[in-house]
Nucleic acid binder design. Structure first.
Length: 233
DNA sequence: CGGATTTGACCCGCGC
DNA sequence: GCGCGGGTCAAATCCG
Protein backbone atom coordinates (compact mmCIF):
# COMPACT_ATOMS: atom_id res chain seq x y z
CA UNK A 1 0.00 0.00 0.00
CA UNK A 2 2.69 2.36 0.98
CA UNK A 3 4.83 1.47 -1.96
CA UNK A 4 1.89 2.36 -4.10
CA UNK A 5 1.85 5.78 -2.58
CA UNK A 6 5.41 6.31 -3.52
CA UNK A 7 4.75 5.19 -7.00
CA UNK A 8 1.73 7.37 -7.29
CA UNK A 9 3.60 10.32 -5.97
CA UNK A 10 6.41 9.67 -8.36
CA UNK A 11 4.04 9.37 -11.24
CA UNK A 12 2.19 12.50 -10.28
CA UNK A 13 5.37 14.45 -10.01
CA UNK A 14 6.90 13.03 -13.12
CA UNK A 15 10.01 12.34 -11.15
CA UNK A 16 12.95 10.18 -11.86
CA UNK A 17 14.54 7.49 -9.80
CA UNK A 18 16.16 10.21 -7.80
CA UNK A 19 12.78 10.83 -6.48
CA UNK A 20 12.24 10.94 -2.81
CA UNK A 21 9.12 9.73 -1.16
CA UNK A 22 6.45 10.54 1.24
CA UNK A 23 7.42 8.57 4.29
CA UNK A 24 3.94 8.01 5.53
CA UNK A 25 0.54 7.33 4.25
CA UNK A 26 -0.70 10.47 2.65
CA UNK A 27 -4.29 9.57 3.16
CA UNK A 28 -3.66 8.92 6.77
CA UNK A 29 -1.61 12.03 7.20
CA UNK A 30 -3.82 14.62 5.79
CA UNK A 31 -6.05 16.54 8.08
CA UNK A 32 -9.54 17.50 7.11
CA UNK A 33 -9.63 20.71 5.23
CA UNK A 34 -5.93 20.96 5.46
CA UNK A 35 -4.80 23.10 2.60
CA UNK A 36 -1.18 23.27 1.67
CA UNK A 37 -0.19 26.37 -0.12
CA UNK A 38 3.03 27.69 -1.41
CA UNK A 39 3.56 30.89 0.41
CA UNK A 40 7.16 31.14 -0.53
CA UNK A 41 8.91 32.63 -3.50
CA UNK A 42 11.75 30.34 -2.79
CA UNK A 43 12.84 28.69 -5.99
CA UNK A 44 13.47 25.23 -4.74
CA UNK A 45 15.81 23.55 -7.07
CA UNK A 46 14.26 20.33 -8.04
CA UNK A 47 11.34 18.98 -9.88
CA UNK A 48 8.68 20.19 -12.14
CA UNK A 49 6.13 19.02 -9.66
CA UNK A 50 6.15 22.30 -7.89
CA UNK A 51 3.42 23.71 -9.95
CA UNK A 52 1.27 20.85 -8.95
CA UNK A 53 2.17 21.26 -5.37
CA UNK A 54 1.58 24.92 -5.21
CA UNK A 55 -1.99 24.74 -4.30
CA UNK A 56 -3.65 21.51 -3.43
CA UNK A 57 -6.02 20.13 -0.96
CA UNK A 58 -5.81 16.98 0.99
CA UNK A 59 -8.94 14.93 1.32
CA UNK A 60 -10.59 14.46 4.65
CA UNK A 61 -8.99 11.36 5.98
CA UNK A 62 -7.37 12.02 9.28
CA UNK A 63 -9.13 11.55 12.45
CA UNK A 64 -8.76 14.98 13.78
CA UNK A 65 -11.10 15.35 16.59
CA UNK A 66 -8.27 17.26 18.24
CA UNK A 67 -8.00 19.69 15.47
CA UNK A 68 -9.66 22.92 14.85
CA UNK A 69 -10.55 22.13 11.31
CA UNK A 70 -11.16 25.65 10.34
CA UNK A 71 -7.73 26.75 11.29
CA UNK A 72 -5.68 24.06 9.72
CA UNK A 73 -3.36 25.16 7.02
CA UNK A 74 0.07 24.09 6.14
CA UNK A 75 3.10 24.45 3.99
CA UNK A 76 5.16 21.65 2.67
CA UNK A 77 8.79 22.15 3.37
CA UNK A 78 11.92 20.83 1.86
CA UNK A 79 12.77 17.35 3.05
CA UNK A 80 16.43 17.89 2.52
CA UNK A 81 16.80 20.99 4.55
CA UNK A 82 14.42 20.92 7.43
CA UNK A 83 16.68 23.26 9.25
CA UNK A 84 15.85 25.91 6.77
CA UNK A 85 12.49 25.81 8.34
CA UNK A 86 13.97 25.82 11.77
CA UNK A 87 15.45 29.17 11.23
CA UNK A 88 12.61 30.46 9.24
CA UNK A 89 14.25 32.26 6.47
CA UNK A 90 11.11 31.32 4.62
CA UNK A 91 9.80 27.83 4.19
CA UNK A 92 10.76 25.88 1.15
CA UNK A 93 8.16 24.18 -0.89
CA UNK A 94 8.26 20.43 -0.77
CA UNK A 95 10.85 18.95 -3.01
CA UNK A 96 10.38 15.31 -3.84
CA UNK A 97 13.92 14.91 -4.92
CA UNK A 98 16.27 13.02 -2.73
CA UNK A 99 18.99 15.43 -1.98
CA UNK A 100 22.61 14.56 -1.69
CA UNK A 101 22.40 16.28 1.63
CA UNK A 102 20.40 13.32 2.80
CA UNK A 103 23.23 10.93 2.25
CA UNK A 104 25.77 10.58 4.94
CA UNK A 105 28.95 8.78 4.18
CA UNK A 106 29.14 6.89 7.42
CA UNK A 107 27.81 3.53 6.48
CA UNK A 108 25.00 1.29 7.40
CA UNK A 109 22.79 2.46 10.17
CA UNK A 110 22.51 -0.97 11.68
CA UNK A 111 26.22 -1.38 11.77
CA UNK A 112 26.62 1.90 13.53
CA UNK A 113 23.95 1.02 15.97
CA UNK A 114 25.37 -2.39 16.68
CA UNK A 115 28.83 -1.01 17.12
CA UNK A 116 27.57 1.55 19.52
CA UNK A 117 25.73 -0.99 21.54
CA UNK A 118 28.70 -3.28 21.55
CA UNK A 119 30.91 -0.52 22.78
CA UNK A 120 28.54 0.25 25.58
CA UNK A 121 28.08 -3.38 26.51
CA UNK A 122 31.79 -3.88 26.81
CA UNK A 123 32.30 -0.69 28.69
CA UNK A 124 34.46 0.62 25.89
CA UNK A 125 36.44 -2.56 25.86
CA UNK A 126 39.32 -3.08 23.47
CA UNK A 127 37.48 -5.46 21.20
CA UNK A 128 34.61 -3.16 20.61
CA UNK A 129 36.88 -0.23 20.11
CA UNK A 130 38.89 -2.11 17.54
CA UNK A 131 35.83 -3.20 15.70
CA UNK A 132 34.55 0.31 15.73
CA UNK A 133 37.72 1.50 14.11
CA UNK A 134 37.98 -1.34 11.65
CA UNK A 135 34.55 -1.01 10.21
CA UNK A 136 34.16 1.64 7.64
CA UNK A 137 31.35 3.74 8.93
CA UNK A 138 28.96 4.60 6.20
CA UNK A 139 25.70 5.91 7.43
CA UNK A 140 22.88 6.78 5.15
CA UNK A 141 20.55 9.36 6.55
CA UNK A 142 17.00 8.49 5.84
CA UNK A 143 15.24 10.90 3.53
CA UNK A 144 13.31 13.55 5.31
CA UNK A 145 10.04 15.19 4.72
CA UNK A 146 8.75 18.02 6.78
CA UNK A 147 5.79 20.31 6.74
CA UNK A 148 4.27 23.04 8.75
CA UNK A 149 0.74 23.10 10.01
CA UNK A 150 -1.30 25.43 12.08
CA UNK A 151 -2.63 23.36 14.90
CA UNK A 152 -3.36 23.60 18.55
CA UNK A 153 -2.03 20.12 19.14
CA UNK A 154 1.60 19.27 18.66
CA UNK A 155 1.19 15.75 17.40
CA UNK A 156 -1.01 15.38 14.37
CA UNK A 157 -2.74 12.08 14.00
CA UNK A 158 -1.20 10.63 10.87
CA UNK A 159 -2.51 7.12 11.26
CA UNK A 160 0.66 5.66 12.67
CA UNK A 161 1.45 4.92 16.25
CA UNK A 162 4.36 6.82 17.73
CA UNK A 163 6.32 6.53 20.93
CA UNK A 164 8.07 9.54 22.30
CA UNK A 165 11.70 8.86 23.04
CA UNK A 166 13.11 12.27 23.73
CA UNK A 167 12.58 15.93 24.10
CA UNK A 168 15.09 18.66 23.69
CA UNK A 169 15.12 22.38 24.08
CA UNK A 170 16.71 23.69 20.94
CA UNK A 171 18.86 26.73 21.13
CA UNK A 172 17.18 30.05 20.47
CA UNK A 173 13.75 28.58 20.74
CA UNK A 174 11.41 28.64 23.65
CA UNK A 175 9.54 25.52 22.65
CA UNK A 176 11.05 22.07 23.07
CA UNK A 177 11.45 19.70 20.18
CA UNK A 178 9.94 16.26 20.67
CA UNK A 179 11.28 13.07 19.15
CA UNK A 180 9.03 10.19 18.22
CA UNK A 181 9.66 6.74 16.81
CA UNK A 182 7.18 4.47 15.09
CA UNK A 183 6.09 1.77 17.51
CA UNK A 184 5.83 -0.89 14.83
CA UNK A 185 8.47 -3.59 15.04
CA UNK A 186 11.23 -3.26 12.46
CA UNK A 187 9.99 0.16 11.45
CA UNK A 188 12.56 2.80 12.13
CA UNK A 189 10.64 5.83 11.00
CA UNK A 190 11.10 8.82 13.24
CA UNK A 191 9.51 12.18 13.45
CA UNK A 192 10.32 15.42 15.18
CA UNK A 193 7.74 17.88 16.28
CA UNK A 194 8.44 21.44 17.25
CA UNK A 195 6.64 24.72 17.34
CA UNK A 196 7.58 27.68 15.29
CA UNK A 197 9.35 30.23 17.45
CA UNK A 198 7.90 33.13 15.53
CA UNK A 199 4.42 31.75 15.52
CA UNK A 200 3.70 29.15 18.20
CA UNK A 201 0.47 28.30 16.49
CA UNK A 202 2.47 26.63 13.77
CA UNK A 203 3.81 23.12 14.20
CA UNK A 204 6.79 21.82 12.25
CA UNK A 205 6.66 18.08 11.76
CA UNK A 206 9.64 16.32 10.25
CA UNK A 207 9.42 12.69 9.19
CA UNK A 208 12.54 10.65 8.64
CA UNK A 209 12.57 7.20 7.18
CA UNK A 210 10.20 4.90 5.44
CA UNK A 211 7.38 2.95 7.01
CA UNK A 212 7.50 -0.76 6.33
CA UNK A 213 3.87 -1.24 7.13
CA UNK A 214 0.48 0.29 6.66
CA UNK A 215 -0.95 2.80 9.04
CA UNK A 216 -2.68 1.38 12.04
CA UNK A 217 -6.06 2.93 11.70
CA UNK A 218 -7.90 2.62 14.90
CA UNK A 219 -10.71 4.92 14.00
CA UNK A 220 -10.20 5.49 10.31
CA UNK A 221 -10.84 2.03 8.98
CA UNK A 222 -13.57 3.38 6.83
CA UNK A 223 -11.20 5.30 4.68
CA UNK A 224 -11.89 4.76 1.04
CA UNK A 225 -9.34 4.43 -1.72
CA UNK A 226 -11.02 7.25 -3.56
CA UNK A 227 -9.90 9.57 -0.84
CA UNK A 228 -6.42 8.40 -1.48
CA UNK A 229 -6.68 9.11 -5.12
CA UNK A 230 -7.92 12.57 -4.50
CA UNK A 231 -4.66 13.55 -2.97
CA UNK A 232 -2.64 12.94 -6.04
CA UNK A 233 -3.69 15.88 -8.02
C1' DC B 1 1.18 -4.22 35.90
C1' DG B 2 2.54 -3.02 31.43
C1' DG B 3 3.09 0.46 28.22
C1' DA B 4 3.99 5.36 27.51
C1' DT B 5 6.30 9.52 28.89
C1' DT B 6 9.79 12.28 31.18
C1' DT B 7 14.27 13.82 31.67
C1' DG B 8 19.19 13.90 32.77
C1' DA B 9 23.17 11.80 30.89
C1' DC B 10 25.61 10.44 27.17
C1' DC B 11 27.12 10.17 22.22
C1' DC B 12 28.86 12.18 18.27
C1' DG B 13 29.16 15.34 14.28
C1' DC B 14 30.69 19.74 13.21
C1' DG B 15 32.76 24.24 13.37
C1' DC B 16 36.38 26.90 15.16
C1' DG C 1 41.75 19.23 20.08
C1' DC C 2 37.92 21.20 22.14
C1' DG C 3 33.43 22.86 22.97
C1' DC C 4 28.77 23.26 21.40
C1' DG C 5 24.52 21.53 20.34
C1' DG C 6 21.36 18.17 18.24
C1' DG C 7 19.98 13.47 18.74
C1' DT C 8 19.43 9.23 21.48
C1' DC C 9 19.39 6.25 25.49
C1' DA C 10 17.50 4.38 29.48
C1' DA C 11 16.15 4.61 34.33
C1' DA C 12 12.57 6.67 36.78
C1' DT C 13 8.06 7.96 36.83
C1' DC C 14 3.39 8.30 35.31
C1' DC C 15 -0.97 6.58 34.00
C1' DG C 16 -4.79 3.77 32.43
Amino acid sequence: MFEDHQGMAAAAAGATTQMGFLPFSIAATAAPNLNFTNNSNNSSSSLGCHQSLKNFSIPPSLSSHHHNNNNLSGTLLSPSSPHATDHFGGPQLLSLQRSSANLWAYGDVNECYNNKRMVQDHHLGVTAMKMKKIKTRRKVREPRFCFKTMSEVDVLDDGYKWRKYGQKVVKNTQHPRSYYRCTQDNCRVKKRVERLAEDPRMVITTYEGRHVHSPSHDQEDSQSPSQLNNFFW
